[in-house]
Amino acid sequence: MVSVDDTAPDFTAPLTDIDGDIELFTLSEHLDEAPIVLAFFPAAFTGVCTTEMCTFRDQMANFEDIGATVYGVSIDTPFTLSEFAEKNNLNFGLISDTNRELVDAYDVEMDFADLGVNRVAKRSVFVVNGDGEITYEWVSDDPGVEPDYEAVEAAAAALEGPAASV
């Protein structure tokens, strides 16, 4: 599993931006946006995942104040994520990992075997600094548990972002 002080696995994947546009996103090309918060979630339009992404939405000003950039990551298609973002007024980009490359690279795969749904993302959060290193990681084996948003914010605040005001 990817841990604190590891180099964040680089990736290129479809990103649905806040305007609903879809483009390719490469992590290493966005390190100037650090600290970067990668919030993995199992699936759009599900209860806890919607609550989690809406909580990040509602706390976005706090992350912007410290110069952090938040991205949600799931195995959903870019088109599903576009609809999910629009329906929930999300104010950050969503990364589509339909090929499960990020789930594999960050080692956050889980199954809902009783539902026949396999290889979704565990609910997890990684904070990446401008050098591409993981400075915070939280991974839950329980899909019903949300991250400690204050801890994520504190981890991001500990880094100097381009617009940091702390």
Rank of each mutant, 00 (worst) to 15 (best):
M1D: 12
S3K: 15
D5W: 15
D5E: 14
P9C: 06
D10T: 12
T12L: 14
A13G: 01
P14A: 06
D19G: 12
G20M: 03
F25Y: 15
S28T: 10
E29P: 08
L31I: 10
D32K: 13
D32N: 14
E33I: 01
I36E: 00
I36C: 02
I36V: 11
A44E: 02
T46P: 07
T46Y: 11
G47Y: 14
T50F: 12
E52D: 14
E52R: 05
M53I: 04
C54P: 03
T55K: 14
R57G: 05
Q59G: 05
M60G: 01
D65S: 09
I66T: 08
I66K: 01
I66R: 03
V73G: 00
T77K: 12
N88G: 01
N88Q: 11
L90N: 00
N91G: 03
F92L: 02
G93R: 01
L94I: 04
I95T: 00
S96G: 07
D97S: 02
N99C: 05
L102S: 00
D104E: 12
A105L: 10
A105C: 05
D107I: 12
E109T: 13
M110Q: 08
L115K: 12
L115C: 04
G116A: 01
N118W: 14
R119Q: 10
A121M: 05
A121H: 06
K122P: 09
K122E: 09
R123E: 01
S124I: 09
V127K: 00
N129R: 07
I134R: 01
T135S: 08
T135V: 15
W138R: 06
D141S: 14
G144K: 15
E146F: 11
E146S: 15
D148F: 15
Y149Q: 04
E150A: 15
V152W: 04
V152C: 06
A154E: 06
A156E: 02
A157M: 07
G161S: 06
P162C: 07
P162E: 07
